[in-house]
């Protein structure tokens, strides 16, 4: 297998995630798009680990595990924020959150 198979698949997933973050209105869907981006990062880490082989593959797994842990933390806090938004404004449209607009 070519390394680029994995890297370009991850790049495609990353760009789909970027599109989702920019184009979606619903807060939960924005968080899902962020998950797509983080998943692309994990695929890249594991692919590079497998390319280098040996001890590097193990270290790649360790780092990918850390990325997954951070992703889980991000979803937890993100959904709590979306819930707060829903409770205060009865809407999870992220376009409505424009209090900081000048």
């Amino acid at each position: 297998m070519l390394l680029n198979q994995f890297l370009i698949l991850a790049a495609v997933l990353f760009c789909i995630g970027v599109y989702g973050v920019l184009a979606r209105r619903n807060g939960v869907l924005v968080l899902m798009s962020i998950e797509l981006i983080l998943n692309a990062v994990i695929i890249n880490l594991i692919a590079f680990g497998a390319m280098l082989g040996g001890e590097s593959a193990v270290v790649a797994s360790v780092f990918a595990l850390f990325v997954i842990a951070v992703a889980a933390a991000e979803v937890g806090v993100g959904l709590a924020i979306v819930l707060m938004l829903y409770r205060n404004r009865q809407s999870i449209d992220v376009s409505d959150v424009d209090l900081m607009r000048g």
Partner: peptide, 25 residues
């Protein structure tokens, strides 16, 4: 958003093909 994503994909794909075109895993 679509334009941004496609531009990003173009840049990433160009860099990846340029750097790792014959690296095997």
């Amino acid at each position: 958003s679509l334009a941004v994503a496609l531009l990003l994909l173009g840049v990433l794909a160009f860099v990846l093909v340029d750097a790792f075109s014959d690296t095997r895993v």
